[in-house]
């Protein structure tokens, strides 16, 4: 079990460029699913990069159970956007998942089997990656992420290319992971009924517009008089 607290994160790509994140604070608790919503360019992927320790904030602090992030980076794992992967690479699901521990240690077959079972694709272990549906590919990528010993999992738009049934299935799987004690922080473009699947929502547009339960966040954003059209409910 691990809690992540990020306080007043400010970030820009260079000193001259404008701020990508401005005084952003987030708390991720064990056993919870938190959605990170915002329009394109809101800074969602940048925030995930900071929380992963991939880049350092200009200002602010990130701690895990009170320790600085850079002392416990192995506690955080990122499931990247699907566009980052070469899906035509000749590899099976088993091969992909086993790469999850490539620099940590040799994975045992039990660990591999457990990761595949957790996402419900044990029967697809020997299938080539490019022969799977989009939903199955995302599950395989999640299984690779679960091979790390991390307790905090960041997911960068995992449902973006999924149809509604596949999206629901995926949300069910990550709910089970949260129930098992993991902290999940999921960036998403969704702004609708599917947000109700989360315990908490953080609405971001360079700074935190609203944070809380899905109902609270929706109410707050509605009261902004639809300043941000992408947040307006139809």
């Amino acid at each position: 079990m691990a809690s992540l607290i990020a306080e007043n994160l400010t970030y820009s790509y260079s000193r001259q460029s404008h701020l990508v994140l401005d005084e952003v604070s987030v708390e991720l608790k064990p056993g919870t699913m938190t959605a990170l919503v915002g329009p394109n360019g809101a800074g969602k992927s940048t925030l995930l990069g900071l929380l992963q320790g991939r880049s350092k904030p200009n200002k602010g602090e990130i701690t895990i159970d009170g320790h600085p992030l850079f002392d416990s980076r192995s506690q955080v794992a990122l499931m990247p956007q699907r566009g980052r992967l070469n899906w035509n690479f000749p590899i099976t699901v088993e091969g992909l998942v086993s790469l999850g521990r490539v620099n940590h240690s040799r994975s045992t077959c039990c660990e591999l089997e457990a990761a595949l079972q957790r996402v419900g694709i044990s029967d697809l272990a020997n299938r080539r990656l490019d022969s799977l549906s989009g939903g199955q590919q995302q599950r395989a990528l999640l299984a690779k992420t679960l091979m790390t010993p991390s307790k905090i999992i960041l997911l960068d738009e995992p449902c973006s290319a999924l149809d509604p049934p596949a999206r629901e299935d995926f949300l069910l799987i990550i709910r089970q992971l949260a129930d098992a004690g993991l902290s999940l922080f999921i960036s998403s473009h969704d702004w609708g009924i599917s947000l109700n699947a989360y315990d908490k929502v953080v609405a971001l547009d360079k700074h935190v517009l609203a944070s809380g339960t899905p109902e609270v966040v929706k109410e707050k954003l509605d009261s902004f008089s639809c300043m941000h059209s992408s947040y307006c409910r139809a």
Binding site: Q52, R54, L78, P80, R84, L85, N86, F89, I91, G95, L96, L99, V102, N103
Partner: peptide
């Protein structure tokens, strides 16, 4: 071999995992 596989599949991910 394994590092080449990881880079071919996900270059940024390979870099993140210390390759």
């Amino acid at each position: 071999y394994e590092k080449l596989v990881h880079i071919g599949l996900d270059q940024e991910g390979a870099s993140d995992s210390g390759i």
